[in-house]
Design a protein around this nucleic acid. Sequence first.
DNA 1: GTTGAGCGTT
Length: 257
Amino acid sequence: MSHFGRSGPPDITDTYSLLVLNITFRTTADDLFPLFDKYGKVVDIFIPRDRRTGDSRGFAFVRYKYADEAQKAVERLDGRVVDGREITVQFAKYGPNAERIHKGRISESFPRSKHRSRSRSPRKRYRDDYRDRDHRRRSRSRSWDRYERDRYRGRDRDYRRRSRSRSASPDYSRGRGRSRYDDDRRSPSRSVGSASPGQRSPSPRRSPSPRKASPFRGESPDRRSRDGRSPTPRSASPLGRRADSRSPSPRNSDVDD
DNA sequence: GTTGAGCGTT
């Protein structure tokens, strides 16, 4: 009796789905089964997992057979500490088809052969694709650096209330860095685009891109050639060598792209 | 090895 979510949805008809949030990433359906089964008849338990890693996403869906039992479980298991973490049990607001449900009760998986989309809104913004979920997954933890924020900097304000545990933003020193990069990036870009393609600066020193890409490339060989007797004191040390190995060459591509 | 707002699979 532990094949929950492994054989797909067994029967979602006449079942009340409960959403369990705030569960640990190591909590499995087997761990929640005896916990929820004690308060009622659990039909199925499904824990969404990541497609890439396969780790739990931190929440599970418990489907009960009766609403009274589900309600009881919500009132009893809501706020219960599982695996050292307080879980949040509540009725699922959205069904497996991203359809709104009354109170965790799934009528019939929404048969669109009768209603189709007549009573619904003209535009259905349920869920685009897996991409949407993937984005949320990525930005779920520490991937909220600047990529997502930069894209939603004008809508992230009320896009989602993440002031629950994340507090305020970690840092705001992104605009400057981006501006600088943009400036440096536009300089050579425009030069190349405006000037002739064959007029490339053959001189490494006169390179119009003084970006801090990798000065070692243009200085290392130069200094080494001139200072034949002192071949870079840092390189002589194993530490220096390690630092050099740290950045072989592909560095400018980062800012260029 | 980490993380933490939220709504789901064959």
